[in-house]
C-alpha cells in the first residue's frame, strides 16, 4: 500500500455531540441506578440522597432518550448509513470475527481482513446498544410514569429487564471504552469521537480498508 497522507473526518460535529450527551447520561444513569439496586448511599448522597438521585436518574433518562432521537431526526441520512453499515456483514466481517480482529493475545493475525467504517466487533456492539437502549427506555418510563397503575407482575418484570439490560450494557460499554481509549492498537480512534472527529488517513486505510476506498478526497 502506498503512502497515504492526510486526515479522515470520521465523525461530524453533531455525531460527536450526541455521543457525548449519551455517554454522560449513561454514566449518571448507571451510577444512580446501581446505587438504587445495591443501596449504595455513598453514590446517592452525591446526588442529594436516594429520592433526589432518583429524580436525577429519571430526568437524565429523558435526556438519554431525547438526545439520540433529535440526532436521528436531524441526521436521518447519516443515521441510515450507520444502520446500513452495522447491519451489513460481509465475508470479511466473518473472517474478522473468527480471528477476533487480532485483539485476542493468543490468536496471531498477519493482516486482518479489510473492514468497513466499523469493524465487525463494533457493528455487533452498535446493534446491542440499540437493542439495550430500547429495552431500558421501554421499561424505565413505565416504572416512572405508570408506577401507580401498572399491576405488580408487569412492574417487577420491567424492573428485572431494566436492571439486567443495564448490567449487560455497562459491561459492553466498559469493553468498548477499553478498546477505544486504552488498547494501544485502537486507542488512536479515541480522539476522533471525543475531540475533533478526525483520524489519521493512513490508520484508517489500514483499519477500515473497505470504507476508506469509498471516501471522497475533498482537498
Amino acid at each position: 500500500m502506498s503512502e497515504i497522507k492526510g486526515k479522515v473526518l470520521k465523525h461530524d460535529q453533531q455525531t460527536r455531540m450526541m455521543h457525548w450527551v449519551h455517554l454522560i447520561c449513561f454514566i449518571i444513569l448507571g451510577l444512580t441506578g446501581i446505587a438504587f439496586y445495591w443501596d449504595i448511599n455513598i453514590i446517592s448522597n452525591i446526588f442529594g440522597g436516594p429520592a433526589n438521585a432518583s429524580l436525577v436518574h429519571r430526568w437524565t433518562g429523558v435526556l438519554f432518550l431525547t438526545g439520540p432521537t433529535i440526532y436521528i431526526l436531524l441526521n436521518f441520512e447519516r443515521f441510515s448509513r450507520f444502520i446500513d453499515t452495522i447491519s451489513t456483514f460481509t465475508k470479511n466481517d466473518i473472517a474478522w470475527l473468527k480471528t477476533m480482529g487480532g485483539y485476542v493475545p493468543f490468536i496471531k493475525v498477519e493482516h486482518a481482513p479489510p473492514q468497513d467504517k466499523y469493524n465487525a466487533g463494533q457493528k455487533i456492539l452498535g446493534g446491542l446498544i440499540i437493542i439495550g437502549c430500547l429495552l431500558i427506555i421501554l421499561t424505565g418510563f413505565p416504572m416512572w410514569l405508570w408506577r401507580y397503575t401498572l399491576p405488580a407482575a408487569f412492574l417487577s418484570m420491567c424492573y428485572n429487564i431494566h436492571f439486567w439490560t443495564a448490567i449487560i450494557m455497562i459491561l459492553l460499554v466498559g469493553g468498548h471504552f477499553f478498546l477505544a481509549a486504552i488498547h494501544p492498537k485502537s486507542r488512536v480512534e479515541f480522539a476522533s469521537m471525543m475531540m475533533d472527529g478526525y483520524v489519521d488517513a493512513e490508520i484508517t486505510a489500514h483499519h477500515n480498508e473497505s470504507w476508506f476506498n469509498e471516501l471522497q478526497k475533498v482537498e
Binding site: S44, P50, A51, S54, L55, M143, R147, Y148, T149
Partner: peptide, 18 residues
C-alpha cells in the same frame, strides 16, 4: 418502586420513588 402508596387507602405509606 412507590407502587404501594397508590394502593394504600389511608395514606399510611410514606416515601418517594427511589
Amino acid at each position: 418502586c412507590d407502587h404501594c402508596t397508590s394502593i394504600c387507602p389511608t395514606g399510611a405509606i410514606s416515601g418517594m420513588l427511589g
